[in-house]
């Protein structure tokens, strides 16, 4: 999955993060709407929408006749419920690629690599507190690390690392046989902020690292990317949502897809 997204998103990596995210969001909106058109019952959706429209028209036309107006409104409500039921399965199907895409975007556009001299923390959680005392972080000369803070009650050890130059560097913890790459620079690359045994963490933070038996998780606290389109600071997910929504609505109009 990581390799697939690496290939799909590679063309956008040459752009600045804000433009890359904008283009991906716009394309995602179009693709998701097209997909929705394929997996939904468009004929039934159209019928229900027409019925809702007719009921709305009826309720306006006969607004002086309370009985007719109320019945029309009841049909509108029923139609809306029907529409919801029809839309739910395709939306549930779309949720799968959506989550996968968002997770992949999170490790590329949600967080950014470190810059030289910028510190962050690396935290390792073990399945057992026994080996904690012997944990040591090894780095090459490009990254400086503090002594660890080991917390037996949490089975956890944490270091502060500070890179001195740009590039991809490996830090390793020989006692538990793990090596973690650290990205330093300006490029949009796939980061590995969290590798965990937890299903949800694995889903939301795709990583290709293999955890040795003693390790529960390893985390690098990469900084969040900040986006300020038109001077308005916003979380990247909000930006993705707004752009994909706009492009999706346009695509629906162009391709005559009921959404």
């Amino acid at each position: 999955m990581n390799t697939l997204f690496d290939l799909l998103l590679a063309p956008f990596a040459v752009l600045s993060p804000i433009w890359g995210l904008t283009l991906i969001s716009a394309l995602a909106g179009v693709v998701l709407v097209l997909l929705y058109g394929r997996v939904s019952n468009q004929r039934k959706l159209r019928e229900v929408k027409r019925a809702i429209g007719a009921a709305l028209y009826e309720s306006i036309l006969f607004r002086r006749d309370l009985g007719v107006s109320l019945r029309a409104q009841a049909r509108m409500l029923k139609g809306a419920g029907h529409y919801f039921v029809l839309a739910l399965p395709p939306l549930a199907i779309l949720l799968v690629p959506c989550i996968l895409l968002l997770a992949q975007l999170q490790v590329r556009y949600g967080v950014r690599p470190l810059t030289p001299s910028e510190s962050t923390v690396v935290a390792v959680k073990l399945t057992d507190s026994q080996p904690l005392k012997g944990l040591a972080l090894q780095t090459d000369g490009s990254i400086e690390a503090t002594a660890p803070v080991r917390i037996p009650s949490l089975h956890e050890s944490i270091w502060r690392i500070t890179p001195h130059s740009t590039g991809t560097f490996n830090i390793s913890i020989p006692a538990v046989e793990i090596t973690q790459p650290i990205e330093v620079g300006q490029e949009v690359v796939r980061l590995r902020p969290l590798t965990s045994r937890s299903f949800w963490d694995t889903l939301l933070y795709p990583s290709d690292l293999t955890l040795p038996p003693l390790i529960e998780s390893i985390e690098v606290a990469y900084p969040e990317r900040s986006y300020a389109p038109f001077g308005v600071t916003m979380h990247w997910v909000i930006m993705f949502f707004l752009i994909s929504l706009a492009s999706g609505l346009v695509a629906a109009k162009v391709f005559h897809i009921e959404v």
Partner: peptide
């Protein structure tokens, strides 16, 4: 605040931020 039992280092967790200090 967590203090390493052996080394003169500590970790501070505050409002979702983790700080490691020597």
């Amino acid at each position: 605040l967590y203090r390493d039992p052996w080394e003169p280092t500590l970790r501070i967790d505050i409002l979702g931020q983790r700080i490691v200090l020597r």
